[in-house]
Design a protein around this nucleic acid. Structure first.
Ligand code: NAD
Ligand code: NAD
Lengths: 216, 216
DNA sequence: ATTGCATTGTGAGAAATTTCACAATAAACT
DNA sequence: AGTTTATTGTGAAATTTCTCACAATGCAAT
């Protein structure tokens, strides 16, 4: 498969959500223009992105919903479940547990970790919280490949190291610090403060950039 | 001032946090290489970004911490407070209220809004929650220019319209839907599901992209 | 069957963004 | 005062990303 840029991967995720809706509604085909409208981008962009899947549409009917949805699911490896863990069961961590617990059956949350003894050995939002000393062992035992980091900034590198030692291959980091990881571990950063600063900046300025980009 | 790209604005926010730390630690000067290390990027990138501020450093000492921090604060308009409001006091909304309440004195949260009568007219995390019918009026009355949207996807456009009518100029949207807004309103999207999909994809693949980008 | 038509797939061009690389320069040292 | 040295500021090249534009295509209508 062609090398797919991280931006394209992000948009394919958005298309997947749209295709799930279309499929649920019984719509059998969809045009790139409709997809573009639903995703808030241009039709050429959509077609270019779908090329990465080797998805094919026909000029008259557009893209077949069921088929492309399957290609998208394959692309994101829905069949091969990946196990997930969370570090930091604070305000944000709890919200994430509540949100991700129900949805996303292909990436079940197997464990949460926290340094606070008040929280350990308890079930929080349907997920057991373990002490941080168990991280390496449990990550390996549960075959956890994805980690979410929601601890304070100064604890982030520490839990990252333990996750990586245990065998984690991808990280979603909410802490506002860059993480040092081996080059084969993927890190996605989500810095809410930075995003708010961007909004603050453009809200206080006359010239807003033409097309708002959907990314992180 | 030169037109500054949204990516550069995001990185300037990161630099600002680093400069605040450096300043608090009493470090009077900093080199682009140090900044680059602290922010997880290249030194040339840092220097290029700082050009947008018209910040000047000297070859021998680097950038003067206090002065550049002030320029960054000016850039983000810290002096002119902008008022903030939240729509959707659910799991995520509460976490955000808890987090943003203390920090960010330059963008105080003036109000929260929720459709659930159980939540309205109560103080949650130090912020009063009002019914959605009050949105237009209170946004105008409190001079709210920034909104955070943390309602379910199908309610997002509705609250957006009310915010915009009230006079909001910038939006941070956690709901996974594109928002239709006038062209002079800036929207920043934060789609956690999409980011997790990206991590899932790269965690399940051998070739991780070389440099992980800090954005959204 | 043929025609007409809107849409796909994609090469090529445009635009945005990052990186290189080096002259200019400010401090430290002799 | 002059020399050395490391770093800034920034054109220009390189790379990445997006957009345009159109030939090829598949369906519907006649
Ligand atoms: N809550 C938000 O809306 C929000 C917004 C922006 C950024 N963030 C970031 O997300 C992270 C978490 O935020 P929060 O609001 O949930 O904080 P919080 O203080 O509510 O929770 C942090 C949790 O991490 C645990 N913890 C601390 N050190 C640990 C360690 N070494 N190992 C394991 N667990 C440890 C604490 O016990 C606590 O339960 C922070 O980095 C914060 O900057 C949060
Ligand atoms: N919680 C997370 O970690 C998380 C993760 C990813 C995405 N999100 C997104 O963030 C948003 C909120 O998520 P959540 O987990 O907090 O959901 P939630 O169900 O806990 O909270 C949603 C809140 O919005 C309120 N609401 C519903 N309709 C409304 C309306 N028309 N006007 C005003 N308020 C209304 C509800 O009363 C509720 O309090 C959703 O769009 C969700 O997709 C959340």
């Amino acid at each position: 498969m062609r090398n797919v840029s991280t931006k394209t991967v992000g948009r394919l995720s958005q298309y997947r959500r749209i295709f799930m809706n279309l499929y649920a509604q019984g719509q059998t085909h969809v045009h790139s223009q409709q997809l573009a409208d639903a995703a808030g981008m241009g039709a050429a962009q959509v077609r270019r992105d779908l090329m990465a899947l080797e998805a094919v549409g026909t000029p008259a009917k557009g893209y077949p919903t069921a088929q492309v949805l399957e290609q998208l699911n394959d692309f994101f490896g829905v069949a091969e479940k990946q196990h997930l863990a969370l570090a930091g069961v604070g305000n944000l961590g709890r919200a994430l547990l509540a949100y991700l617990g129900e949805r996303r059956p292909s990436t079940p949350i197997m464990a949460a970790f926290d340094a606070d003894p008040e929280k350990t050995y308890k079930e929080i939002q349907g997920c057991t919280c373990y002490p941080v000393d168990w991280m390496e062992d449990l990550v390996e035992k549960f075959k956890i490949t994805i980690a979410i980091i929601a601890v304070p900034g100064d604890a982030a590198q520490g839990v990252t190291d333990r996750f990586v030692t245990g065998g984690v291959r991808g990280i979603l980091n909410f802490a506002p610090v860059p993480l040092r990881v081996p080059s084969d571990v993927y890190v996605e950063y989500l810095d809410i403060t930075m995003l708010l600063d961007k909004v603050t900046y453009f809200a206080g300025n006359a010239q807003v950039p033409t097309s708002s980009d959907v990314e992180s």
